[in-house]
Every structure is written in C-alpha cells, then in structure tokens.
Simulated assay, not measured.
Amino acid sequence: MPLANTKTSQSAKAHVRHTFTASAEDVFDAWLDADVLARWMFHPNIRQEEVINLSLDGRPGGTFRFHVRRGDEKLEYYGTYYDVNRPTQLVFSWISAKDHKKTLVSVTIQENNTGCELNLTHELGACAEDYIHFVEMRWRAEFAILSELVN
C-alpha cells in the first residue's frame, strides 16, 4: 500500500472506540475464542483472507499464532498476552512475521446501560502517519463485523 503522507511518527498510536449492545463478557470472550475471532478479525468483507489456522492460549503469558492466506501470500501473526482481566481488559503484543515489528494492543471494555464500550489503543512505534489511519480503519471494520456477531 503506497502511502500518500510519508511523515513519520516515532511513537504512533492508533485509537478506536466502539459501542456494542452486547455485554462486556460477550465482547471480551470474542477475543479469546479462536472460532469466533476468525469470523470477525479475518472476515472476507474486510479483506479477502482465508484463515488457515488460529491457535491461542488466552491467559497472561499465553500466546497466539494466526496463519492466513491473502491471495498467493501466506501471512503469520503472533504475540503474547500480557494482561487478561475478563471482562474489562486485554493487553497483548501483535507481531507480523513479515517484518517482525512488535506492536502492543490494549483493549478496555466498560459496561454501560445499553451494553458496553470498547476502547482500543494499538501502539505502532515508528511509522508513517497514513499507516495509523489504515490501522484505525481496519480495527473499525473488524469491530463492525464483531457487532454483527455479538449484538
């Protein structure tokens, strides 16, 4: 993806907020159930991807590994869960095997009168500003699919 804005941020962070009518427990659990996660994080309406294998151990110190196919390319994502506090907080590293750049994803979920609100911060490190917007758009699209599954 060519970037129109090549200005670089050294400590870039993507921020996304999404409101669900589902309970905080249902939204939280969708992050740690491999079958459910595959249906919203790698949905074909977001990007033409085929899930090859997803494995995860959703506890502090546990790891995940996602293998997907995008066209002729096989991609692998992996990471470690640092903080797992059902149903309010999830913190994990996110690494693409393509570039091995370690990023950090922090998710907080707050119950409200109509369901819950999810706040995500994805610490990207040094990257072009356009990439921050791309990452935010990707998370928003994934949360829209997640809403369809859990609401």
Rank of each mutant, 00 (worst) to 15 (best):
E129D: 14
R70I: 09
V51W: 03
W40N: 06
P87E: 01
R59Y: 10
D83E: 15
A22S: 11
S23N: 03
D33S: 03
R69K: 12
A38P: 07
P87M: 02
E123T: 13
F28K: 01
F64E: 07
V91M: 05
Y77D: 04
L124R: 03
G79Y: 01
F92W: 06
P60R: 07
H133E: 15
E73F: 13
T88R: 10
L124V: 07
E111L: 05
H67Q: 12
E129S: 13
N53L: 08
W40C: 10
E129L: 15
I132Y: 09
Y78W: 10
V84C: 13
C116K: 00
M41Q: 08
W94V: 01
A141I: 07
K98Q: 12
D35M: 03
V16D: 01
E136R: 10
Y77E: 04
W31M: 00
Y77K: 00
Q89A: 12
S23C: 03
N85V: 15
M137A: 14
V84P: 07
A144D: 14
E142M: 15
T21S: 10
A97W: 00
A97N: 05
H100N: 15
E50I: 08
G125Q: 06
E49S: 11
A126R: 12
A144W: 07
I109F: 01
D83L: 15
I46K: 00
L104D: 06
N45Q: 13
T21A: 05
E123I: 12
I132A: 09
E111Q: 12
N113L: 12
A22Q: 06
D33N: 09
D99W: 04
T121A: 10
R17A: 10
